[in-house]
Amino acid sequence: MSTNKLDQLYRSVIMDHYKNPKNKGVLEDGNVTIDMNNPTCGDVIHLTMNVEDDVVKDVKFEGEGCSISMASASMMTQLIKGKSTEDATKLAHTFSDMMLGKDLDDSIELDDLEALSGVAQFPARIKCATLSWKAMEKGVSGESQ
């Protein structure tokens, strides 16, 4: 088996987030709620955020899906908490570029997210990784439900 390529996908930091997700749950006092699913595979995400003065004060997610989609959601919440909606949107665009295998702006702090760069080599799995980011982008853009 091409274990090397697989290891690029399933980095230990991803599996850590999958097994011990950060910010899992529902924000009872959230003012933004987004439900999104990936109709081709059945992954679902329920994202609640508290956005005040264009800052993501708090965020939590619930969902069902593969390790990539759930780990990505966990990392996303970790990264955007406390950020302005503008920075959160910028991060979503950076992440999207990463999934397309594009060169990234070095000045942006990606932390654990860097580990997901291997997903770009698995085209069928890119949608798994981007689901929670799309939900977040929709949420901070004011298109909440």
């Binding site: 390529k5 996908l9 059945g42 899906g65 390790s67 799995r125």
Partner: peptide
């Protein structure tokens, strides 16, 4: 093991299987 993760590992071994809800969400 989530079926997507499983299908990716199988694909790396040359084996093509379907993973997902198989266009039958009520059945899932």
């Amino acid at each position: 093991v989530h079926p997507h993760d499983l299908a990716t590992v199988l694909d790396m071994n040359g084996i093509a299987v379907r993973a997902g809800h198989h266009c039958a969400q009520p059945l899932m």
